[in-house]
Amino acid sequence: MSEPALHIRDLTKAYREPEGGTFLALDIPTLDVAHGEALALRGESGSGKTTLLNIIAGILPADGGVIEVAGERMTGRSETARDRVRAQHIGYLFQTFNLLPGLTALENVQLGMSFRPRKGEAPRKAAREALDRVGLSDRRMHKPAQLSVGQQQRVAIARALAGHPTLVLADEPTSNLDAARAIQCMDLLMEFALESQAALLVVTHDETQVARFERVETLRTPEGSPA
């Protein structure tokens, strides 16, 4: 585990403007997150926080620079290769939970491990344990519509962490929850990530949540970009 869970160097991402030309959406000289470390990433709206998470996850390609997750390169590789690294090493937690409505809580959690090249622990068993861990043992067979918002977010946390990923990316994970539930949810996420020795990178606007992190980075809009 000598290399960091996440290593970023000279990362850039530019977008084409409708009227021609490009603007720089992201410019990160360097960013490392160690295993078991939790990092809060804040930034003003349009600073490229979600874009950064999508590039780290390999959903969007970077234009330049290097990203390594668990020592495996994400940049300069094919979409299939990035998909494989994401499936194996990354857990992604969304603001809108993104649970599949047709699947039960257990199946949604299991889904996160179904596409891993090396499945390791039996997905169903791991999913059950993850749901136990987030306190939803009695809601395994419920579909998302049958769960409260807080319970849905806990299922999403279980899905992100059940496969013991190297890196957990969380995009505004508590913005849909009330203050009390937001604290509970973030506690759960940080504890679960720490237990798994996963690096946790959380994008949030919520200063209350930011204050709970030992390490906080601010993402600034690159120079020359439209504010």
Partner: peptide, 16 residues
């Protein structure tokens, strides 16, 4: 589209 995007985000490759 969202369902497909979620599948891709949790690790499903295009072939899946």
């Amino acid at each position: 589209r969202r369902e497909i995007a979620i599948l891709r985000a949790v690790g499903a490759r295009p072939r899946h």
